[in-house]
Design a protein around this nucleic acid. Structure first.
Length: 559
RNA sequence: UGGCCUAUGGUGUAACUGGCAACACGUCUGUUUUUGGUACAGAAGAGUCUAGGUUCGAGCCCUAGUGGGCCAACCA
């Protein structure tokens, strides 16, 4: 085995550099994945999860799962639960389950210290006044008239805020930094606001809640996180992050370090919690775990496997530039994994009846391979009889030799069964095909080893015995949006690009072995695609979701 | 009227300063095949946003320009 030299991404390079030249010890490495519990995780988060937990695996370092729960208005326990489920399902283990709310008291104590040092003050203006004074990116801000209140006054006001003695919106605690900074976040950012709202974990203990910037870096500091990775839009926050950490630590303390990477965008969909929530609320999809959603739960229900999502995240890497990853790459990852693991079965989605006129037996059971890619997968028995369904598009009365399927007068193989020959076709008065009549070669049985069975025929069709077949609801999914970047249009709202045909439900016929299939089982319907058993599926009413079609170079060439 | 980030085939990432810019997806050929799948073999496709500069030598460094992105929530 030659040692494959894999190049490092820029995040790994930062860590290697810290290890080699900045005095970091390997044992000091520690990461975290910090979701806000205000929605479901999506494919973009999968990248971040893979990055942080992947780093943990690579450096054998702990990774905390930390909920950034500083805004009680938006956050709920339901989301905490779904996030934990999704991270676990993806196959990762966190070292500690943490909450920013665990540090509310510590944060409060530090805030009091900042006030005492003259680094923070209570502002009693309206949010509009504060916003106006903040200036714009191109214009300096101006100082608040409350900026130089005495320490005593600040302390008593802050105490009153904490005790809920002041109304919401009356006061905020601000850091005293620099209203002329070119970085707007440094223009006396708000550290606390008054909110008389119950929190999903601290209930009514607190009447004031810390803002993101004040809570995040300090949480990293408390947990001794070495590297705090976030997306690029937080880059300007870095200066504030460092300012706050410096205020509560000494130079000897181990300081967490924030670095930023570009969030990943997927073509033909959106990765924004707010917009995904709208799709649910406005009924464009049924739920957060609708198989069309790019949420982890949606992808799971669609049939994506943890490995396929991890491979996807790993293969697209991390970078710092704007990007739109093509959906075909995600689909490739699904096929790649499912090809090795999904059991092959036969199902007919658009049936046409085929009668084998010279077949006299009542029925017979044939052996079928479960997965040619996996020798340990074994075989199963499938029923065959005189009347079967085949795919409507697999028959043409006559066609050129490019058509490898059934035509009149030509032979074709029925997968795992016999070679048949098209003889006749029965139509209604409108010319629609009602039945196809064929004859079969009794000596051509698959696997029998006879000369006849080894005969070369131009095509192989999948089929299902009519009297044994199970009816099933099959949901065919297409891209959720008709354009590559639905939220990139400055004129049009992304909702205008929702694909009206993203879901088609049909009734298909599948082989009886599927009777015992369970939720989340994945199958390859041979020659069609990968399908996953939906959570609504029952023994009496099977429901399958199409994960992705098989690659089809013939169909592609023909359209 | 500012600050910061960014710019490599269609897409996403690589490239120790110096052999004709690599890998994956996608596209196209062909071989095998009881899945027009898989596997295998191969091809096309960028000369690294532009202009200068440093250097014997630059995709990598510097400067300017241009394009894209981010920053004015008591959101994260």
């Amino acid at each position: 085995m030659s040692e494959e030299k894999k190049s490092l991404n820029f995040i790994e390079q930062i860590i290697e550099e810290d290890l080699a030249n900045n005095g970091y010890k390997k044992e000091e490495l520690k990461f975290r994945f910090p979701p806000e519990p205000n929605g479901y995780l999506h494919i973009g988060h999968a990248s971040s999860i893979n990055l942080n937990f992947g780093l943990g695996l690579k450096y054998n370092a702990p990774v905390n799962l930390r909920f950034d729960d500083t805004n009680p208005i938006k956050e709920e326990q339901e989301f905490v639960d779904s996030i934990k489920k999704d991270v676990e399902w993806l196959g990762f283990k966190w070292a500690k389950e943490c909450y920013a709310s665990d540090y509310f008291q510590q944060l409060y104590d530090w805030a009091v210290a900042l006030i005492k040092n003259g680094d923070a003050y209570v502002d009693s203006q309206t949010s509009e006044e504060i916003a106006t004074q903040k200036g714009t990116p191109t214009k300096h801000g101006t100082e608040s008239p409350y900026r130089n209140r005495s320490v005593e006054e600040n302390l008593s006001l802050f105490e009153a805020m904490k005790n809920g003695e002041t109304p919401e919106g009356a006061h905020v605690l601000r850091a005293k930094i620099d209203m002329t900074s070119s970085n707007m976040l440094m223009r006396d950012p708000i550290m606390y606001r008054t909110l008389h709202t119950a929190h999903h974990r601290t209930n009514n203990d607190w009447k004031i809640y810390p803002m993101y910037d004040w809570a995040h870096g300090e949480s990293d500091f408390v947990e001794s996180i070495s590297h705090s990775f976030c997306t690029l839009e937080f880059l300007p926050h870095r200066e504030l992050y460092n300012w706050f950490v410096n205020k509560v630590s000494t130079p000897e303390d181990f300081q967490p370090k924030q670095r930023e990477f570009a969030r990943r965008n997927l073509s033909h969909t959106i990765v924004s919690k707010r917009k995904l929530a709208q799709l649910v609320e406005k009924g464009f999809v049924e739920s957060w775990d609708d198989p069309r959603m790019p949420t982890i739960s949606g992808l799971r229900r669609r049939g994506y496997t943890p490995a396929s999502i991890r491979n996807f995240a790993e293969s697209i890497g991390v970078g710092k530039r704007e990007n739109i990853i093509d959906m075909s790459h995600l689909e490739f990852c699904a096929r790649e994994d499912l090809n090795k693991t999904a059991q092959r079965v036969m199902g007919v989605l658009d049936p046409v009846k085929l009668v084998i006129t010279n077949y006299d037996k009542e029925e017979e059971w044939l052996e079928a391979e479960n997965n040619p890619e996996d020798e340990t997968a074994g075989t199963r028995q499938i029923p065959f009889s005189k009347e079967i369904y085949i795919e409507r598009e697999d028959f043409k009365e006559s066609a050129n030799r490019k058509f490898f399927r059934l035509t009149l007068g030509k032979e074709v193989r029925l997968k795992n069964a016999y070679i048949i020959k098209g003889e006749d076709v029965v139509k209604d008065e409108d010319g629609n095909i009602l039945e196809i009549h064929c004859t079969y070669d009794p000596l051509s049985k698959s696997g029998s080893g006879t000369e006849e069975s080894k005969r070369k025929v131009k095509g192989t069709l999948h089929w299902v015995s009519i009297k044994h077949a199970l009816k099933a609801d099959v949901r065919l999914y297409d891209r959720l949006f008709t354009v590559e970047a639905p939220d990139a249009d400055k004129e049009k709202d992304y909702l205008e690009f929702v694909n009206p045909n993203s879901l088609t439900t049909i009734t298909g016929y599948v082989e009886p072995s599927l009777q015992t299939s369970k939720e989340l089982d994945s199958f390859q319907f041979q020659r069609i695609g990968y399908f996953c058993v939906d959570k609504t599926s029952t023994k009496d009413k099977l429901v399958f979701n199409r994960t992705v079609t098989l690659k089809d170079s013939w169909a592609k060439k023909n359209n």
